[in-house]
């Protein structure tokens, strides 16, 4: 259980995290989302005491991280895959971390095996690929068999098998009743891995809800319509509550009407349809809508234009 209360962090004039309050519950995977600079990493660093909050506080299982007698057993964190001395071997890196908690050597070899690093464990970390660096970071996070896991972009640079492995790992850890906080920019992965989402934007919590609610609440479902008379259909459908987008010359995306309503209108006007597909909003769409709104209100930037031209 991670509890943040009015957590605030300012660097000089810049506010990275602005008075946020949230709870990360055990037994589920909580996804931590937000655009670059939204304050995710800063928040994660404050949880493990690397950064000191300007105001407010954050506790893990009721205590500040530094007040736990066995911090690595309490929280395993992958905050930055580069938090390793490049001149040291992976094995020695883990042995040095394990020694602080008198964690036996056996456990070090266990996490090396678990993360598939056996063949490179004695090589210097400086020569590691991004994916191997991530595996080492995950190995370090698992070292203390922690009750709470905090993983910042853990699948960054992993191969598909590694991505799948991380997914099943965090899901099984959560199933054991542990607390898992996970950040990722890959929405499709987040949609299948996380149960709950906390979305940050400009240092504030802009959503804190179950994944299904975020998708359902933020984005409107749309309908894909293919018709040889697409332009005629578009003008037939047009109304203030309906948005029609030309995707191709014969393909429209309609929001504001369900598939049945589109089909009925087309039939009434005698327009032939070649395809009529209801589209569920994806997490990515929901996320972009949430965060674009946030960006728009604050800076008036053209993030939404970018999305349209994409």
């Amino acid at each position: 259980m991670i509890e943040a209360q009015n957590l605030t962090k300012t660097y000089g004039a810049k506010t990275a995290v602005n008075d946020i309050t949230f709870t990360v519950r055990p037994g589920i995977v909580t996804g931590f989302l937000g655009p670059n600079g939204a304050g995710k990493s800063t928040t994660m660093r404050m949880i493990v005491g690397l950064d000191r909050p300007t105001h407010g506080s954050v506790t893990v299982n009721g205590r500040h991280y530094a007040d736990h007698s066995s911090p690595l057993h309490e929280v395993g964190a992958l905050l930055d895959a580069k938090a390793v001395h490049t001149g040291r071997s992976a094995e020695n890196h883990l042995l040095a971390l394990a020694a602080t908690h008198s964690i036996p050597k056996r456990r070090v070899h266990e996490v090396i095996e678990l993360t598939g690093l056996q063949s490179v464990a004695r090589k210097r970390v400086g020569g590691f690929s991004l994916g191997m660096g991530q595996r080492l970071g995950i190995a370090a996070a698992l070292l203390g068999d922690p009750q709470t896991l905090i993983l910042d972009e853990p699948i960054n640079g992993l191969d598909p098998e590694g991505v799948r492995w991380v997914r099943s790992l965090v899901r099984s850890l959560a199933a054991e009743g542990r607390t898992v906080l996970l950040s990722s920019h890959l929405m499709s992965e987040m949609a299948v891995t996380a149960d709950h989402l906390i979305v940050l934007g400009k240092g504030r919590v802009i959503a804190d809800a179950a994944v299904a609610d975020v998708i359902g609440g933020a984005a409107r479902a749309s309908v894909r319509v293919r018709s040889p008379q697409a332009s005629v259909l578009a003008s037939t459908l047009a109304s203030p509550d309906v948005t029609v987008t030309h995707v191709e010359h014969d393909l429209l995306t309609v929001t504001g009407l369900d598939a049945g309503a589109v089909g009925d209108l087309a039939a009434r006007s005698g327009i032939a349809l070649h395809e009529l597909t209801p589209m569920n909003a994806s997490l990515e769409e929901a996320y972009l809508q949430l965060t674009n709104d946030d960006v728009e209100y604050r800076t008036g930037s053209s993030a939404r234009d970018l999305e349209v031209t994409r």
Binding site: V48, G49, L50, Y65, A66, H68, P71, L72, A77, L79, D80, K82, A83, V84, H85, R88, H93, L97, T100, H101, A140
Partner: peptide, 11 residues
């Protein structure tokens, strides 16, 4: 960046 691993294990 090793210092972040070090200080996480000895906060």
């Amino acid at each position: 960046g090793m210092i972040r691993s070090t200080l996480s294990s000895v906060p």
